[in-house]
């Protein structure tokens, strides 16, 4: 029994003739908070789709919770917030409560109904993202950042062991981003949830993550935040493929 929750070995992937990922090897250990950074088009979303079985790698193998992808069945252990949650069908007449409950559907199981306990879980997840005042509002009437928070709740409601978040805070305001990172920190520390977070917010990332990886077609860096912050501009320029000037943030 390995301690890797996700294990990627020698992953190659191309869209038609465009190589997006080349020989990517990555182990995600149980309990870590991994931050993934990299330039636009660096292949982060593609790699996540491979981890989730939406895309099949051209070469290489994926294991989830110690099982090869094609034998993995426990999808409810994984919560996912996709980068393009904002492109869902805005006209869909669902309340926040209904949207979050959809995250539970698979876990509750076929031919079973939501009971009181499930409804409480839904409310709890809504409270975790601070949307309780909007529980009965229509999802299409919320602002983009509020919708994003609802989708985070939909991922949390399953009590996942692994949470994969692809730029979840795009459009979320400053105060709620802080609150969101506090929530992630707490989920990781108190509830032992393993986290994989893609973001361009390197300041917050180095503050909260336990591991950082840099992806630009290949995996260029994998290490602790301290090591990442000590990278020189030259290192970063190599990773990003263009000159980078480090701007120091005070948090």
């Amino acid at each position: 029994m390995t301690n890797s929750i996700i294990s990627l070995k020698h992953i190659d992937y191309s869209y038609e003739d465009k190589t997006v990922l080349q020989d990517v090897n990555l182990e995600l250990e149980r309990g870590v908070f991994m931050g993934m950074v990299g330039p636009n088009g660096g292949g982060k979303t593609t790699l996540i789709k491979i981890m989730l079985g939406i895309l099949k790698p051209d070469n290489g193998s994926v294991s989830l919770f110690g099982k090869p992808m094609d034998r993995f069945k426990d999808w409810t252990k994984i919560g996912f917030v996709s980068q393009k949650s904002n492109s869902f069908n805005k006209g869909f007449p669902a309340t926040v409560r209904e949207v979050v409950s959809m995250g539970l559907a698979a876990k509750v199981g076929y031919l079973k109904f939501f009971n009181k306990h499930h409804k409480e879980k839904v409310m709890h997840a809504i409270r975790q993202v601070g949307m309780e005042d909007y529980a009965d509002a229509s999802i299409g009437n919320l602002s983009g950042g509020q919708q994003q928070r609802v989708f985070i709740a939909r991922a949390l409601v399953n009590d996942p062991e692994l949470l994969i978040l692809d730029e979840p805070t795009v459009g979320v305001d400053y105060q709620n981003v802080r609150r969101f990172y506090d929530l992630l920190h707490q989920l990781n520390q108190n509830d032992q949830i393993t986290l994989l977070l893609v973001t361009h917010d390197t300041g917050a990332m180095t503050e909260h993550a336990t591991d950082i990886v840099c992806l630009n077609k290949e995996l260029h860096f994998h290490g602790e935040p301290e090591k990442y912050t000590s990278l020189t501009e030259a290192d970063l320029s190599r990773i990003y493929g263009h000159p980078v000037h480090v701007v120091k943030h005070d948090h």
Partner: peptide, 22 residues
């Protein structure tokens, strides 16, 4: 009635519903 929650989840967000195991 039996598959209400699956029908609803799939109609709202097919990709997410599929990943979650429906």
């Amino acid at each position: 009635i039996l598959f209400y929650k699956e029908f609803m989840a799939l109609s709202f967000d097919e990709e997410h519903a599929t990943i979650s195991g429906i």
